[in-house]
C-alpha cells in the first residue's frame, strides 16, 4: 500500500499552510496525549500479565513452587494457599494480585515474613540515590564526550574519545566494581569497600565508587548517541545556511546543532533509567549495598518469588513511565512530531 507520497505530502502541506495556526494544546495534541497514555496503560497491563502468569509456565503445582526449598509442612501449605488464593481460578488470582499491586500491596515476603512493600520500601532509597548519582555522572561525562568528539570529528581528539568509549563500553559493571574496589578502596583506601553509610553525606561518599561502576557502560551509550546525532546535524544544510549568514560558530553549534541533536539523546535517556535499575543489581552485590537490586538477587537465591515479582513489575513500570514521558516531551523538541508529520 504505497501511497504516492509526493501527492499526499504536497496536499497535506498546502492544507497545513492554509489552516489557521494551531496551538500546542489543540484537539490533535490532546488526542495524541490520550493515545500515548492509552498505549502506556496497555503496555503495563500486558507486562503485568507476563509477570504474573510466568509462574504458570513452571510445571508442577503452585504451592510446591512457592515453597521450594522450604519445609512443606501442612500448616505452611495451608497458609500459602490461603494467602495467595491458590485454590482460586488463575484469572481471579491475577485480579487479586493486580488489585493489590495497584494499591501498593504486593503480598508478603516468604523470606522476611513482612509485607513485600515494606521490604522494598526500606531498600529503595539506596538504589534511587545510586541511580541519581550515576545519572548525573552519565549526563555530564557522556554529553561532554559526545560533544567534544563531534566538534573535532576526524581529528585526533575525536579518535581518542572514540577509542576511550570503545574500551569503556567493554567494562561491564562487575568488572568496573572489582577494579575500582581493588584500586581506590583496598589499595589506596580512599573509599569504603562495603555498605551505604549513615546519613546523606556519608551515603554520597559511600556511593561514589558504585555510581562510577554503574555509569561506565551508560556513559558510552550517551556519548556515542550524542556524537552521532551531533555529527548528523553538523552535516545538515541548515547549519551551512546559518553559517553563511554570519552567525558565530558557537551560536550555530548551540542553536542549530546541539538543539536539533537533542531528540535521539532524550530517547536514549528513556532507556537508561530501566537499564540503571537493572544493572544496579550487580553493583549493589559487588559493593554490598542494601538496595532493591541486591534484594532481587537475594530473593531469587532464597526462592522468594513474591518479592521478585514485585521488583520486576516496579522496574518495568519505571521503564514504561519514563519512556512515555520522553515520548510526550517530543513535540517540545521537534515540532514536526506534534503535527503528525513524519520527522526527518
Amino acid at each position: 500500500m504505497a501511497l504516492d507520497s509526493r501527492t499526499v505530502s504536497v496536499a497535506a502541506r498546502e492544507a497545513a499552510a492554509e489552516a489557521p495556526r494551531r496551538g500546542r494544546w489543540s484537539a490533535a495534541g490532546v488526542r495524541r496525549v490520550a493515545g500515548k497514555l492509552g498505549g502506556l496503560a496497555l503496555t503495563l497491563f500486558l507486562a503485568s500479565l507476563l509477570v504474573f502468569f510466568s509462574r504458570f509456565l513452571v510445571p508442577g503445582d503452585p504451592v510446591s513452587f512457592l515453597l521450594r526449598g522450604r519445609k512443606p509442612s501442612p500448616e505452611a501449605v495451608a497458609q500459602v494457599t490461603a494467602q495467595y488464593g491458590l485454590d482460586l481460578p488463575p484469572w481471579q488470582q491475577y485480579l487479586n494480585w493486580l488489585g493489590g499491586a495497584l494499591t501498593g500491596d504486593f503480598g508478603r515476603s516468604l523470606q522476611y515474613r513482612q509485607d513485600v512493600s515494606t521490604v522494598i520500601g526500606e531498600r529503595l532509597p539506596v538504589t534511587l540515590m545510586l541511580v541519581v548519582m550515576s545519572g548525573l555522572l552519565i549526563a555530564i561525562v557522556g554529553l561532554s564526550a559526545g560533544v567534544v568528539a563531534a566538534l573535532n570529528k576526524g581529528r585526533p581528539l575525536d579518535r581518542l574519545t572514540l577509542i576511550g568509549l570503545t574500551v569503556l563500553s567493554a567494562i561491564p559493571s562487575f568488572v568496573g566494581s572489582i577494579v575500582l574496589i581493588a584500586i581506590f578502596a583496598v589499595q589506596l583506601g580512599w573509599f569504603p569497600t562495603f555498605g551505604s553509610g549513615q546519613g546523606f553525606g556519608d551515603m554520597v561518599y559511600h556511593l561514589v565508587l558504585p555510581s562510577i561502576a554503574l555509569a561506565i557502560v551508560f556513559v558510552v551509550l550517551v556519548g556515542k548517541v550524542t556524537r552521532s546525532s551531533m555529527v548528523e546535524q553538523l552535516g545538515r544544510e541548515h547549519v551551512e545556511v546559518a553559517t553563511s549568514r554570519g552567525l558565530k560558530r558557537a551560536t550555530v553549534i548551540r542553536r542549530h546543532v546541539f538543539r536539533n541533536a537533542l531528540g535521539p539523546i532524550l530517547t536514549v535517556s528513556g532507556v537508561l533509567v530501566a537499564g540503571l535499575l537493572v544493572a544496579s543489581t550487580i553493583v549493589e552485590a559487588a559493593f554490598g549495598l542494601a538496595g532493591i537490586g541486591s534484594l532481587l538477587v537475594q530473593s531469587v537465591d532464597r526462592l522468594d518469588f513474591p518479592v521478585v515479582q514485585a521488583i520486576v513489575m516496579l522496574v518495568v513500570t519505571a521503564f514504561v513511565v519514563v519512556n512515555a514521558i520522553v515520548d510526550l516531551a517530543e513535540p517540545w523538541i521537534d515540532p514536526r512530531s506534534a503535527a503528525g508529520a513524519s520527522a526527518r
Partner: peptide, 14 residues
C-alpha cells in the same frame, strides 16, 4: 519494557 538482564533473572527465579 523488560531489560534483558531482568528477564534473565526472572527466568532463573522461575
Amino acid at each position: 519494557a523488560f531489560p534483558s538482564l531482568l528477564l534473565a533473572i526472572m527466568a532463573v527465579a522461575l
